[in-house]
Design a protein around this nucleic acid. Structure first.
Lengths: 120, 120
DNA sequence: ATTTAATAATGACAAGTGTAGAGATGAGTT
DNA sequence: AACTCATCTCTACACTTGTCATTATTAAAT
């Protein structure tokens, strides 16, 4: 399955919220981008056509959607592709960004350390 | 600047090779994908129009191209976007892939260790 | 029961992308 | 000088993507 950037943005919200509606997602997205309800709904429709999300119930006429695929099932191939395409043979920058800008949990750090120990 | 996936693939080769020609790049890409010379040349033309690569000389009629932008100038924003879009708040999988599948140099590992030490 | 305001469905369009064929052109070969 | 083959240039086309307007529909308010 291949999702566009915008589709990815929407399904990410969906994973975060567990379930949501078109009006709610529109509001959420409007915090960062100025797009109409129509635009967001189109993306939702496309996600549905791709079977990435599904309708689970209704509030009045409002459709409630939920993810139909797992986050990791999308992440894995994307990560592989990204690293090979963007960081081809030179992962240092990525590493750097991860360590400096992302908030790694203590758990993540401990994991990192354990891997490093093994490598020695 | 925004490059498509295919454009990215080609300019990555270019960074690796320092300079190259359409026929050479075509051959290289054919190792993994079955595309015609025309297709590859179109991508090269688009990269040129976007000023991502430039002509530096000729061998006979064959044009030699070289990157016109730095690898890191593209990587940085892409990495930021990617992590926020794909790994939204959950960088563990990415970390994992980096550590397990990518060949990190000793230098990279030492760097990692030094960052970890500082965090303690 | 009517009206209204919100939500959904449909259709559309320009730009970008992957893909390639056809024709021009010229460097090297005979 | 003529020819040929590799390479370049130009054009094209279907598909995806971001974007939205319009129209249909119906729950809720009057």
């Amino acid at each position: 399955m291949k999702l566009s950037e915008f589709e990815l943005e929407v399904i990410n919200l969906m994973w975060e919220l567990k379930e949501s509606t078109a009006p709610a997602l529109h509001q959420e997205i409007c915090k960062t981008k100025n797009v109409t309800y129509s635009t967001v709904k189109t993306i939702i429709d496309r996600l549905e056509k791709k079977s990435a999300i599904k309708r689970i119930k209704n509030y009045g006429r409002t459709i409630v959607y939920a993810p139909a695929i797992e986050q990791s099932s999308l992440q894995k191939p994307l990560i592989k592709t990204f690293i090979s395409k963007v960081c081809a043979g030179n992962p240092r920058l990525l590493l750097n960004h991860l360590l400096e800008d992302e908030k790694l949990s203590d758990d993540d750090l401990a994991y990192l350390q354990s891997v490093l120990d093994k490598r020695k």
